[in-house]
Each structure stands twice: as structure tokens, then as C-alpha cells.
């Protein structure tokens, strides 16, 4: 039997295959897709009830509320990222495929963000209206969430990869992940609030973009290493 040297799948096609597979799984499990979205809606609607009904006060807190709701929604959605693959053994297959694990992790992260993060971003202007966010802040909110939520997913992926083998995950994922999201939260909310007072939106988006690039470059490496530790 000749050694296998030809016909090995390219990294690009393996990336696409993994992306398609995860999207296919998500399309068959509509709940996984819908729940983060519902969570975002509900949490954001709780604030006016608990904090204030005054439009002016709502305006003041809306940027922060929207960002924190998006942050929590993305965190809650993370748990499903590697769990079923860990339990049914697909993760071991992924670790043992000849392609760099970095790209496979990136494919899984991308598909996960597309089904759980993107819907939240898309619906955010509607919730922003309900929370009396000034109309000129809709675009900054939308753009900052669009650039910022993938960073949350990439960071969350590290936490999930570290904890996927644990019997009782409980809140440990949140304890690990939430402190790491502070920089995104800072510049995400600033990007929504500051342009109203004359600051340049592009600057904040650039910083968020830089965070996204850094996260794309580094976070999947950490996730891949964490997966190798967890599958053992």
C-alpha cells in the first residue's frame, strides 16, 4: 500500500466543508439559532421595566444595555460551539485531520457567529428604537456590534474550548470569559456614545477592527491549543 501523499484535501476545501457542516447542523437545530436572539430581546426589554421608563434616562443607558445584552447573548450561545462535537467524538476527528487546526476552529467560530451573533446585530436597531437610543446612533451601534460581536465569539471560543470536557460547566465559562471582553465593551459602547458629542466614529471602529484582527490571528490558536488539552 503506497503512502498517502496525493489527493489530500486542501485547507481551503476542508475549511469550507466544516463551515457548511456547522451551518447545516444549525439549520436543523433552529433553537440554537433562535435562543440567543430571543435572549437578547428579552434582556434588553427588562431594563426599561427595572430601571426607568423615562425616555431621557433610557437614552443615557441604552448603549450600555444593548452592548451588555449582546455580550450575554453571545456568551450563552457559546456553550453549544464544541459540546456536541466533543460528546459524539467529531472533535477528535477534527483534531486528527491533516489540516491546520487553526482554520478548522476559525470555520467553526465563523459559522457559530453567523447563526448566533449576526441575528443579534441585525435586530439591534429595533431594540435600540425601543430603548430610545437617538436615531443618529443607530449606525454606530450597528457597525460597532458588527465588528465587536465576532471578537466576543472568538474570545468565548477559548473559554468553551477550555471547559468543554468538564462535567459541571455551570458558570465557569462566564467567569473565564467575561473579564476578557472588557476592551471590546469599552470601545463598543464608546463608539455608540461618543459620536453624538462630536467624536469621530471611524476612530473607534478602527480600534474595534484592530481588536477583531488581533482576535482572528490569535484566538483560534488559543482555542486550538485548548481543544487539544480538553480532548485527551
Amino acid at each position: 500500500m503506497a503512502p498517502v501523499t496525493t489527493g489530500i484535501a486542501g485547507t481551503g476545501s476542508a475549511f469550507m466543508a466544516t463551515l457548511k457542516r456547522d451551518l447545516l447542523i444549525a439549520s436543523k437545530r433552529k433553537n440554537d439559532m433562535l435562543n440567543p436572539f430571543m435572549f437578547f430581546l428579552i434582556v434588553a426589554s427588562l431594563f426599561p421595566i427595572a430601571v426607568t421608563r423615562e425616555p431621557q434616562q433610557l437614552t443615557d443607558i441604552s448603549a450600555g444595555v444593548l452592548w451588555i445584552a449582546a455580550l450575554l447573548a453571545s456568551l450563552l450561545a457559546m456553550d453549544s460551539l464544541y459540546r456536541s462535537d466533543f460528546e459524539d467524538g467529531s472533535l477528535a476527528l477534527l483534531l486528527l485531520c491533516p489540516q491546520p487546526l487553526y482554520f478548522m476552529v476559525l470555520a467553526k467560530n465563523l459559522s457559530h457567529w453567523l447563526v448566533s451573533g449576526l441575528p443579534v446585530v441585525l435586530v439591534s436597531p429595533l431594540i435600540a428604537y425601543m430603548l430610545k437610543l437617538p436615531a443618529e446612533s443607530y449606525l454606530p451601534l450597528f457597525l460597532s456590534l458588527l465588528v465587536g460581536t465576532p471578537v466576543l465569539s472568538l474570545l468565548g471560543s477559548i473559554g468553551v474550548a477550555l471547559t468543554v470536557g468538564l462535567g459541571s460547566r455551570g458558570l465557569i465559562l462566564a467567569v473565564i470569559t467575561l473579564p476578557m471582553t472588557v476592551p471590546v465593551l469599552i470601545f463598543g459602547t464608546l463608539a455608540v456614545q461618543e459620536p453624538r458629542f462630536g467624536a469621530d466614529l471611524a476612530g473607534y471602529l478602527a480600534i474595534l477592527g484592530a481588536q477583531l484582527l488581533a482576535a482572528i490571528a490569535l484566538a483560534p490558536l488559543a482555542s486550538a491549543a485548548a481543544l487539544r488539552i480538553s480532548v485527551n
Binding site: P3, V4, T5, I8, R21, L24, I25, K28, R29, S84, D85, E87, D88, G89, S90, A92, L93, L96, C97, P98
Partner: peptide, 20 residues
């Protein structure tokens, strides 16, 4: 890389996704 390309692993957990 070559080793992994020449390897087929079938674990306890068989790697079959239930919804697919």
C-alpha cells in the same frame, strides 16, 4: 501532517453527528 493523512482513527465516541 503525512502521518495524520495516513491515519484513520475510530474512537469510543464514533464521531457521528446525531442531527446529520
Amino acid at each position: 501532517e503525512l502521518f495524520l493523512a495516513s491515519l484513520l482513527y475510530l474512537g469510543h465516541r464514533i464521531g457521528v453527528n446525531r442531527v446529520l
